[in-house]
Computed example of a mutant assay.
Amino acid sequence: MTVRPDNAWSEASVDLRKVGANPDYWYPVAWSHEVKSGQTFAARFAGEPIVLVRPSEGAIFALEDRCAHRQVPLSKGTVDGCTLRCVYHGWRYDASGDCIDVPYLGKGKRPNGVRRYPCFERDGLIFVWPGTGPAAAPLPRIGAAADTAYKTRRFGKLVACHYTFMHENLMDMNHQFLHRRTTGKVVPRYLGSRAGERWMEVDYSFARPGEKPPLGEAVIVGGLRGRAGTARDLMTVRTEYPYQTLQMWTKGDAPVLNVWLGYTPIDAAQRRNRTFVVLSVRKPRIPGILDLGWPVLAWFTNRVFSEDCEIVEMEQAAHDAQGADWNREVFPPIHALRKLLRECGEPGSSPDGAQRNPGRT
């Protein structure tokens, strides 16, 4: 018989896995290459359907993915100049969401339009503002993607778990045992943490008793040789709500590794998220070495990421089977992270994961 943990382990009366992502932030919903010129792309945020439209000329824009007429997806429609026509009756919408033409109505007769989502594109990602309040200024940069001193790869996937599991997984480097077949014997050492309004970060160093790093890691840290058994790096993992970053230094002020991650909930219950990873490696002094090792680095990072995704999906499955969060957390920074995620999460979010009424703007 499964015995539920006693209340002494409970951190709060609100289950963190039922706290919605706060919509009043910029969220990535697609990679730039997914939205072709003159085409649409169907995206979602927490169950809300969103259509991205890239006109042949002009900036990309985002609308509610439902025609005001019969509620069919506008993403099935046709891009016409700087407007979008519904596939069903040809109703035409502009970038503000206004319905500017119904072919079979007289001039000057326009029905209500659809919601417009503030939208911007940067460093290979497309962001929308799902909240109903005024949008903040667009993010100035996405990690080190725009820095020519780095080589960047972009990857990610749809992960079947609540976004908070992703934050915890990256923040808690004590899980390196999970990756032992990929990374070898890694011994993380917790160095300390810091916190402020809507952010916290944790420092680690790493050692490899009696062995050299695997080739994929060696490419990241900038050399194919390293002294075994030495704590030769410093890693800082930061949650700056709702994003995460990971930076690693071997020497000097510039990190050799700079990773930016965004987690966008897809379904209304927020049990699935689309994870976006922008990973940048500082170029070594010798030209071409990083390019030669890039396929190995890609294999290495993809495998570590896949292992992480598999384990957090197991965590979500356990939560769903138990009906609540039974975790017995013992690592103080994760307690602090959970508190941060609760405080920053959607105010008044429903514990049953019910979809918000986004309204129309």
Rank of each mutant, 00 (worst) to 15 (best):
P111Y: 05
R110S: 04
W91M: 10
K157M: 14
V35D: 12
K151S: 11
T132R: 13
R85C: 15
P55Y: 09
A145H: 00
A46E: 02
P140Q: 07
P118K: 11
P130G: 08
D147W: 10
R70P: 01
K76T: 04
H89K: 05
Y93Q: 01
H33W: 15
A149E: 14
R44P: 01
A136T: 12
Y150T: 03
A160L: 14
G90Q: 08
P49C: 11
G97L: 06
A46V: 08
C82H: 02
A68Q: 09
C161P: 07
K76F: 05
K151W: 10
P55G: 09
K107M: 02
P55N: 04
A137K: 15
L125A: 02
L139A: 07
I100L: 02
V102H: 02
D147C: 05
R70I: 11
W129T: 00
V53T: 08
R66K: 13
S32M: 13
H69W: 08
P103N: 09
V128K: 00
G131Q: 04
T148H: 05
P49I: 12
L105V: 04
I100K: 03
K76L: 15
Y88K: 03
G106T: 11
T152F: 13
L125F: 13
T78L: 15
R115P: 14
K109I: 13
D147Q: 03
F61P: 08
L105F: 14
D80C: 15
D123P: 05
R70N: 07
F41V: 01
R66I: 07
